[in-house]
Design a protein around this nucleic acid. Structure first.
Length: 483
RNA sequence: GGCGGCAUAGCCAAACGGUAAGGCUAGGGUCUGCAAAACCCUCAUCCUCGGUUCGACUCCGAGUGCCGCCUCCA
């Protein structure tokens, strides 16, 4: 079964067939560094981080490129407002982006090209577009002529004539066509600028992505991804300025994630209804945020609200608890009793089935929501086996549980969730020992007291029917302040 | 106005023609020194109306309702 993706370009599901067998070259649009990124941005980042994990899991050697736009109107505007140098502002938020994306748990991109470090490549592309008559110079500006590229509109499925009727932008009369967009902008006094054949200036928004993606991934790479609000004009323009020259689409498959809503409305900078990831990670575990962001199919809208987050927190705690129990139980010495072996067979089969379905879901247009269901299903099967009353954990059973533990961790890894259970300190071990002793002597007040002490130390206590006591690290939690 | 998407139980959310995963919540029960946890059981015929089919949540048409893009935006 091949990986399938719904390609924005063709509007249909297509099998993933990379240009170079066994390799996957992926480009995902990164941030414009003029502010901290918000949860809506994070959705895109997490979705495409998951994409590369899925591709890796499927055995592809992935090259993942994510750009950083560090020169742009918004950066200049904010810098001006704050009386700072644009480059300083960009530097600050580039670093913030790197910190936050790591805190989110994303794998670092293989390459994180910055626009300001690729001026020669960008200028070369603009020149090439002028030479091939797809662009023209107006004063110190250079524009792409959309009419020169017959397939303009193919990415977004828009009709060029319709677009013009609805055009809401104020039209620069000098342009040949209202839809023509800037490849190069002449610098205004005081603005950051670079030398070019057209005088001092800076690149337009779209050209950097074309220049950098093709530099690192080639003319026509495998997957290009971003939020659905980038389809037009950003990706449309990126493709136009590339394909006009190369004759090939910039990427074979274009993937776009749906928006993150907040109270039913798109979370966005301009609406002002955004929550920055930096703050959110201060009040909730990143594991919960990631699971939440992947709890709906990537193309569906997803609503960021306290109820949905709380539900995910509960689910995460179950998984955490299951892993905690496994750690405890696997530390027990094996029992000789093998009477439960038939149960073990069914258990192993069930686990394997969950894992298989997990992968099938991911193969099918990266259905993380379906895959998450299988993850829970596996966790439930483990919990049920652990809960067998009087169950003797024979060597065979322990092996099965251990395998299931590995499977669960594998699944979590695809979601970018690495559960690191805190180790029990000597003090905790001592408290646990004392509590067991108190229980054996039926000294209930002491046992309860010790349980409270353990809870204060961050560990849950679970008494098993067999008399054994599990000491499980308490799960990370959302702090009181509601999201 | 143009283009696109979505409508599944109290909430979230899968299923890509064969008779509705999973999570949260809720109710009932079992277990337990207590508490916690755990375990068991219960809870939808899939917006409306037509059509195609042996058979549709899944395909087609119409309607209704949301949402997004068409301007910076992940």
């Amino acid at each position: 079964m091949p990986l399938m993706f719904l390609n924005t370009l063709s509007r249909r599901k297509e099998a993933f067939v990379p240009q170079v067998p066994g390799e996957a070259r992926v480009y995902a649009c990164g941030p414009t560094v003029y502010d901290y990124f918000h949860v809506g941005n994070a959705r895109a980042f997490v979705v495409f981080d998951t994409l590369r994990r899925v591709l890796s899991r499927r055995g592809f050697k992935v090259t993942f490129v994510q750009n950083i736009t560090d020169i742009d109107d918004k950066i200049i505007n904010r810098a001006n407002k704050e009386g700072r140098k644009a480059s300083d502002l960009a530097e600050e938020f580039t670093q913030a982006f790197r910190d936050d994306i790591a805190a989110l748990g994303n794998l670092p991109a293989d390459i994180t090209p910055r626009a300001t470090e690729h001026m020669p490549e960008i200028i070369a592309w603009v020149k090439k577009l002028i030479e091939t008559k797809h662009a023209y110079v107006l004063g110190g500006d250079v524009y792409f002529a959309v009419r020169s590229f017959a397939a303009y509109g193919k990415v977004s499925g828009k009709d060029i004539e319709e677009l013009e009727e609805g055009a809401r932008v104020e039209v620069d009369r000098r342009k040949k066509d209202p839809l023509d967009f800037a490849l190069w902008k002449a610098a205004k006094p005081g603005e950051p600028s670079w030398e070019s054949p057209w005088g001092l200036g800076r690149p337009g928004w779209h050209i950097e992505c074309s220049a950098m993606s093709m530099k690192y991934l080639g003319d026509c790479f495998d997957i290009h991804g971003g939020g659905e609000d980038l389809i037009f004009p950003h990706h449309e323009n990126e493709n136009a300025q590339s394909e006009a020259v190369t004759g090939k689409p910039l990427a074979r498959i274009w993937l776009h994630n749906g928006h993150l809503n907040i109270n039913g409305e798109k979370m966005s900078k301009s609406l002002g209804n955004f929550r920055i990831v930096r703050d959110i990670l201060g009040i909730m575990p990143r594991e919960v945020l990631r699971l939440f962001l992947l709890s709906a199919h990537y193309r569906s809208p997803l609503d960021f609200n306290p109820e949905n987050i709380e539900a995910m927190q509960k689910g995460f705690e179950e998984i955490w608890r299951t892993l905690g129990r496994l750690r405890e139980v696997l530390a027990f010495s094996p029992e000789a009793d093998t009477s439960f072996d038939p149960l073990v067979d069914a258990f192993q089969q069930g686990c394997l089935q969950s894992l298989t379905r997990f992968d099938l879901n991911l193969d099918e247009d990266m259905n993380t929501a379906g895959a998450l269901g299988e993850l829970y299903s596996l966790a439930n099967q483990i919990k049920k086996l652990l809960a067998q009353k009087g169950f003797k954990f024979s060597e065979r059973c322990r092996e099965a549980l251990s395998r299931a533990q590995g499977q669960l961790l594998e699944m979590l890894e695809v979601f970018g969730v690495a559960v690191e259970l805190p180790q029990k300190t000597q003090a905790v071990l001592d408290l646990a020992k004392k509590r067991q002793a108190a229980r054996q002597q039926k000294d209930w007040p002491a046992a309860d007291q010790l349980r409270l002490a353990l809870e204060a130390a961050g560990f849950w206590v679970e008494d098993m029917a067999s008399g054994a006591m599990l000491v499980i690290p308490a799960a990370l939690r959302i702090t009181k302040e509601t999201v």
